[in-house]
């Protein structure tokens, strides 16, 4: 018999682990990935692969040669970042090399410079995306046009997203709610299909990795706020349903704002967080210079998270 182990109680542990959580998030992203491949074809697949590989490689290199710590790439968090980064860029050939730069910024600056998983104040994928948006404004807003299913060519015609078109004053003609819901619209590769994203979010809720608090308040606030604006002036402002179905609100609310590391821990804090994200998104969309504001909104709310953690305490037993 080997030596007896001694420790303080408890002596059992649930089968939860960081690794399990991260790989489940990856699983939840699969429907959106499939949708992206279906609508944007081989480009989407290639951009995703390049992005994921780049993120994993950069994390491995940084841990091995700069931080000199055992590698943690197997925990799957770099894969999550890679997928989310790919989902946030248009599926074009240019992206095949641009996304590598994005991966370096996301992993290197967004995550590892703070000490790795769990210590980053901002969502790494959003950091990467915003860096690319500012550095490569043309490539990042050249959206492939959606045609038939599984386009197998590299050269696809490009066009505007519904949001971009709206910003230019051309109200999204010919785009129906059903198109937006299924994802038959222009946009970043992972954000187009609301149904695929909701499917993944439902899985995460079922596995208790996320709770309803952030997605529902995020989307709800965006819907209510845009509805008010729309009721005031339907000419200038977008239809609220269209607002939440197009652009990155669905992807942001379900996968990026709910990132455990950068969102508040207490439920009350999560409600404020979701509300802030929704409000800022609509403000940036309507009065900012960018047609889309989800990334900026989440980034701003990420910076408020430590404060929310301080203010919003869980309810004590005795209260």
């Amino acid at each position: 018999m080997s030596l007896l182990n001694i420790s303080g109680s408890p002596h059992v542990h649930s089968d939860e682990s960081t690794k399990k959580i991260m790989w489940r998030v990856n699983a939840a992203l699969v429907p959106a990935l499939l949708c992206a491949i279906a609508y944007f074809g081989i480009n989407a697949l290639l951009v995703s692969i390049v992005s994921v590989l780049a993120c994993v490689l950069f994390q491995w290199l940084i841990e091995k040669f700069i931080m000199k710590v055992p590698s943690t790439v197997s925990d799957g968090s770099a894969v999550v970042t890679g997928l989310l980064l790919a989902f946030n860029v248009p599926a074009t050939v240019d992206m095949l090399w641009i996304v590598v730069i994005g991966a370096l910024v996301a992993i290197g600056i967004g995550k590892m410079s703070f000490g790795g998983l769990g210590k980053n104040p901002f969502n790494p994928a959003i950091v990467g995306r915003i860096f690319l948006l500012i550095s490569f404004p043309v490539q990042m807003t050249t959206w492939p046009q959606v045609g038939g299913l599984f386009p197998m060519t590299f050269d696809v015609p490009t066009g505007a997203t519904p949001l971009g078109a709206f910003k230019e004053g051309a109200l999204g003609e010919g785009v129906t709610f059903m198109d937006a819901f299924l994802g038959h619209i222009g946009g970043s590769m992972g954000e187009v299909s609301a149904i695929a994203i909701l499917l993944g979010a439902a899985y995460l809720c079922w596995k208790k990795i996320i709770t309803w608090h952030i997605p529902v308040t995020f989307i709800g606030t965006a819907f209510v706020f845009s509805a008010i604006l729309w009721l005031v002036n339907p000419e200038t402002y977008m239809d609220p349903l269209m607002t939440i179905l197009t652009g990155g609100i669905m992807l942001g609310a379900c996968f990026m704002a709910t990132d455990m590391v950068t969102s508040p821990m207490a439920k009350s804090g999560q409600l404020i967080f979701g509300f802030g994200c929704g409000l800022l998104t609509i403000i940036i969309r309507n009065w900012g210079s960018y047609p889309e504001g989800v990334s900026f909104a989440i980034l701003i709310m990420n910076s408020v998270t430590p404060l929310l953690n301080r203010w919003c305490k869980p309810k004590r037993f005795a209260e």
Partner: peptide
């Protein structure tokens, strides 16, 4: 491993700590 700030400990705490 690193804390990923998931908040599961706070949700599980029967004393609300």
């Amino acid at each position: 491993t690193n804390c990923i700030r998931c908040g599961k400990c706070a949700s599980a705490c029967p004393m609300g700590l």
